[in-house]
Amino acid sequence: MISAIGEVLLGKEHQVRLALACLLARGHLLIEDLPGMGKTTLAEALARSFGLGFKRVSFTSDLLPADLTGLNVFDPGAASFHFQPGPLFSQVLLADEINRASPRTQSALLEAMAAGRVSVDGVSHPLPRPFLVIATQNGLDQGGTSALPESQLDRFLMRLGLGYPPRQAEQALLRGEGLLPDRLNGAFGPEDLLELQGRCDRQHCSAALLDYVLDLLERSRRQPAQGHPLSPRAGLALVAAARAWSLLEGRDHVIPDDVQAVLAAVCEHRMDGGQRGDGDGALSQRLQAGVDGLR
């Protein structure tokens, strides 16, 4: 399946794998890069490959919360209000350019991401499962953006940067060899995704591995100069992502290599506070180098 998505998104196998791991770990994904790097394509390919319901919202500065969640509409025939679900009620929500929306709208999204439900006029409406938000955001140096608060950043399991494709892949792209996402036929269904997600939870995490994760967390907290300290939620995210990664690697247990593979994607945006720092993944690399990986 990775290769199938890889045919859509040329030359980005590692990012595709990470995105898939994020999906398996029931996490939300934030893709950050310049326009035109294939962010939307990746999101769409992910959704389609599992045959998930897919909706897309382009965030603008005047987008209101109700535009996302839906609202109670008066039905003159029944003389009552009934709830008209918004685009949030989908399995995969692609939130394009999320950092263009107002903080108020972002926080509505926040509740949906964290709790898996939407509250409108005091009534909770559960969201479908699986529910995955894939948000894209443009660099903060772009016009018309407002930075995502750290609290919201923390709710994304991973942040990926796509980067330019290698020359060979770009050549293939220009030749028109890439697949369009809508041509992906779903060999998997949503039930397969749910089952895979369940299997992720059963991946064995040994005490030695948890020690490794704890050492990483502790080190990030002991060196405040090296970015924000990692929260317990970051630790949960790290373990969940590593579990998904180990499943993708075809193992039934997690090893430090899995943690290291997802470390940059899971922790970098929590450590740099949304500010792309001095180079990609520098903070998490430093963190990784500070902890004994042999175990």
Binding site: A289, G290, G293, L294, R295
Partner: peptide, 28 residues
């Protein structure tokens, strides 16, 4: 187990190859 690993790694270190900071065993 770890002591045994370190014993073995020392044997390699005498030949000039030691794990880098943060490196995992499969990578090394």
């Amino acid at each position: 187990l770890r002591l045994e690993l370190e014993h073995t790694l020392r044997a390699f270190a005498r030949h000039g190859l030691a794990p880098q900071a943060g490196e995992t065993l499969p990578v090394f």
